[in-house]
Design a protein around this nucleic acid. Sequence first.
DNA 1: TCAAAAGTGTTTACCGTACACCCATGC
DNA 2: GCATGGGTGTACGGTAAACACTTTTGA
Lengths: 232, 232
Amino acid sequence: MIFTLRPSAGGAVLALPLVRRTRDPFQGHWALPGGWLDAAEGLDAAASRTLAETTGLTASYLEQLYAFGDVDRSTTRVVSIVYWALLRQDEVDAQRAAHDAAGDAPENVAWSAVEDLPALAFDHNQIITYALWRLRNKVGYSRIAHGLLPDEFTLAELREVNESILGRRLDPANFRRQAEASGTLIPTDRFRTGSHRPARLYRYDVAVELAERGPLSAPPESDHPVPHRIEE
Amino acid sequence: MIFTLRPSAGGAVLALPLVRRTRDPFQGHWALPGGWLDAAEGLDAAASRTLAETTGLTASYLEQLYAFGDVDRSTTRVVSIVYWALLRQDEVDAQRAAHDAAGDAPENVAWSAVEDLPALAFDHNQIITYALWRLRNKVGYSRIAHGLLPDEFTLAELREVNESILGRRLDPANFRRQAEASGTLIPTDRFRTGSHRPARLYRYDVAVELAERGPLSAPPESDHPVPHRIEE
DNA sequence: TCAAAAGTGTTTACCGTACACCCATGC
DNA sequence: GCATGGGTGTACGGTAAACACTTTTGA
């Protein structure tokens, strides 16, 4: 499941690529991009590979979502270990422009806004519903939004990403203070000009981001969990 | 991964069952209980079955944790879709008593406190570390603690469960107010006597619990995600 | 009567929200 | 100048934490 933000009238909207199935079951239907796990690759690697095969891009954020394994979710027995990725809009645009210039735009891939999805193959609509729920939850307590932004961005751009994911407006003044207080933003000396008062550009502190994912992102020093006791 | 609370000097401690491996790789080592996915059962069903085979019990809480699939995590290629379960202490005790009476205590199962784990087979120590991290996170924003308690419990017992998971003392007065304000507790007319002033017994409102798990616990009415737009 | 846990009240600090206001730039 | 978004100040309300205090039982 690959999310990006697509500019649209009245703010950006979340969009994701779908692929048209070329064989049964669900031939001709749209589905989430996916692929088979190779015997010689780990789950993360397989997800990265599938992402690259679909979009030609590398994700700025990639995380395991959930394993779906009901017996009746396909005509054969398939367990899907679903990952979700966030792509920076500028990279998606650049890739699309390159394809357009070369005239080799992928035939069976289409980007769809999440609020305007067709009926998909298998249980893929349900998977998207779950991913959206997780995304909207996570944007509240995590600094996930920068996965959709270029390296340098204004606070207004960051706020608009959050607004697009959450589906509601945020107070610019309060958002600014919370963002600055989070300790994850590094102000630069550069400004975005072009309209009205120039806005300062920020970048993310990547060191902070790693600590949020728990023990999986950075393997613990010891094989043993940290002992913990109640102090009397 | 099966958690329960074991009474101990100075408060309860988290404990989980380990099984001794009877074949290579890691023969003789302790490992997390597990089993193979049957072609005719879903992931949740397989987790329930494995739990029952290990403990003879049904979980009061069962949730998918994570899928582990690095190529080098076993000598053969194995993808483990790990679930975690919470067991009520009274049921574990009853089951153990039944086994002791019948003289058929399971030979290769041992309960170990999480703060005193041996070196386990495969990447199982890492898996436990991750599960503990998730458990401690989740106890903060979810009412997960009641999975470790009998149907009726005092607020002090509920607080002690939270203290055991978090590894620190909580203020009884503040904990009481937060628990009562959560809207998930139903006071009963019964009291726990035996020492000092009797404490009122509470039970959980099960209806509330279901809403916390997101779209997976209760499938959405429609196959399509709820559209959302920013109001201008 | 005393110890100890159950349960209540109060004070403080902090944080999210709302909103008034000033600042700097393009037009 | 003036419209507009960038950026600051401030007041209010809710909630978590700290802790003093009362209540009720067993011993």
